[in-house]
Nucleic acid binder design. Structure first.
Lengths: 226, 226
DNA sequence: TCTTTAATCAAACGTTTGATTAATTTGAGG
DNA sequence: CCTCAAATTAATCAAACGTTTGATTAAAGA
C-alpha cells in the first residue's frame, strides 16, 4: 500500500462529508459531481476513483446514515428498565440523532419520499431498529398491563412521527412558528413533552376516564363517569 | 381572443398534472422539461410558453398544493362543535389530503426538507391554516379545562406529525411493516387511533393518573397513587 | 376576405452534466 | 537512489440540460 500526499489524510472522508451536506440540502439530482468535489477540496475524478460513480457515493452515504441511527438507537434502548424509561430513552436518542445529524436525517427523509429505493435495499437492519424495537417494547407494555389496548400497528409510527415532524418542518419553526428555540435544551423539552403526551394524553383526567377502554375504531366516548 | 386547435382543451392543466406527479417522485432537479412535456403529451416549448421557466412551473405547483390543503382544512374545521370533534375532523381532513393528494403532500414535504424556500414565500396562508388553527383549538381547550396544561407550542406539531409520518414512511409500510392496509378504511382507522392516543394517551388508566398534572419538564412520575 | 393573435411544434442554442482518459505526482520498499 | 503502484490531476467526451427561435396552425375580429 503506497500512500502519497500525507498532508491530505482522508480524501474519501472529505468527499463523503461534503456530499452528505450537499445531498441533504439539494437532493441527489440537485448536486453535481464537480460541486461535491469543489466543496471537498478534491478533483472531480477522485469521486469516481473512490466511489465508482455518483450513485454509489449516494448509496454509501445512505448506508452510513442508516448504520449511524441504528447504532444510536440500539445503544440508547439497551439496559432500560421501565417502559417509560425505555420510551424516554428512545425519544431522546431519536431526537438527538435528528438534530445532531440533520444532514443524515434529511437525506433519509428525502429517500423515503422518493420511494425508499436505497433504504429498502438495506432493510431489515434499518426499519427493524426503530419500528421493530419500539413495537416490541409497546407490545410488552400491553401484555404487562402498563399500556391499554391501543392500535399496536400504528402506535410506534405515531410516536416516531411526533419526533420526526420537528425536523421536517424545521424551516417553518425557525420562522417563528411557536415559541420554539432549537438550543441544547430543546431535546429535553421535546422528549419530556412527547413521552408525557404519548403516555398520558392531552385531555384532562376527568374528561378522559370514561372512554379509556374504548376500541380505537369507535371514536364515540368522553364525559365523566367513573 | 383567438383560439386555435380546439382539440386540446387544457394543455396548461395537463402540464401541471404531469409535472406534479414527476416532481413528487423525483424532485425538482430530478425531472427534465422534456420529461414533463412527454408525460403531458405536449411540446417542451409549451412549458415555457405557459409558465416562463421550469422554476415558475414548480412555484405554481407549490402554490396550488398549499391552496388545496388550506381549503380542505379550513372547510373541515369550520362548524365543529366540541374539541374532540374538531380534532377528529382535522385529523380526517389532513389524512384525507395526505392520501388523497399524495403528489402534493410529497412535494410540500420535499420543499420543507430543501429549506422551505417557496413555501415560506406564501406564508402566512399555509402555516396559519394547519398550525395556527390547531393551536388555537387546543389553547381554547386548555382554557375551557378540557385539556390539561400541555406544552401548547409543541402539541399541535406533535399531532400533525402523528399524521404526516404515515405518508412519509409509506414505502416502509408498503413493504409489510405493521399490518397496515392503505385501503379506503385506513383514514378512519388512523383518525380514530390518532385522536384517541392524543387525547387519552397510551398508558392504562391506573398507571397514568398520578402524574397527570406533572409539568412536562419533570419526566419523573408514574406508579399508582390516587 | 384579410389580418391578427393565441397556440403549437421541430430544431437548434449554449451550458452543464456524469464519466473517462492519459499523464503526473507521491511515498514507501528494495 | 531508484522503482513502482497508489493517488491525484487536467483535459476531454458524449449526452442531457433549460431555453430560445422561427415557422406553422387555426380560430376570431375587421
Amino acid at each position: 500500500m503506497a500512500r502519497p500526499k500525507t498532508d491530505d489524510p482522508q480524501a474519501r472522508a472529505k468527499i463523503m462529508a461534503a456530499a452528505e451536506r450537499l445531498f441533504a440540502e439539494h437532493g441527489f439530482a440537485g448536486v453535481g459531481i464537480r460541486q461535491i468535489a469543489a466543496a471537498a477540496g478534491v478533483n472531480g475524478a477522485m469521486i469516481h476513483y473512490y466511489f465508482g460513480n455518483k450513485e454509489s457515493l449516494y448509496r454509501a452515504i445512505i448506508e452510513n446514515a442508516a448504520a449511524t441511527v441504528r447504532g444510536l438507537i440500539a445503544e440508547a434502548i439497551s439496559g432500560a428498565t421501565s417502559l417509560e424509561e425505555r420510551l424516554t430513552r428512545f425519544v431522546k436518542a431519536y431526537a438527538g440523532y435528528l438534530f445532531g445529524h440533520p444532514h443524515l436525517a434529511r437525506i433519509l427523509s428525502r429517500e423515503m419520499l422518493a420511494g425508499g429505493k436505497y433504504i429498502l435495499e438495506i432493510i431489515p437492519k434499518y426499519a427493524t431498529t426503530n419500528y421493530g424495537m419500539l413495537r416490541e417494547a409497546m407490545a410488552e407494555g400491553i401484555r404487562a398491563g402498563e399500556l391499554r389496548n391501543i392500535d399496536i400497528d400504528l402506535a410506534p409510527i405515531s410516536l416516531i412521527g411526533m419526533i420526526i415532524v420537528f425536523q421536517l418542518i424545521r424551516p417553518l419553526i425557525a420562522l417563528g412558528l411557536g415559541k420554539i428555540q432549537f438550543d441544547e435544551r430543546f431535546i429535553e423539552r421535546l422528549a419530556a413533552h412527547t413521552v408525557d403526551l404519548f403516555l398520558n394524553g392531552a385531555a384532562s383526567p376527568d374528561q378522559q376516564a370514561a372512554g379509556k377502554r374504548a376500541k380505537p375504531s369507535a371514536p364515540r366516548r368522553r364525559k365523566v363517569q367513573r
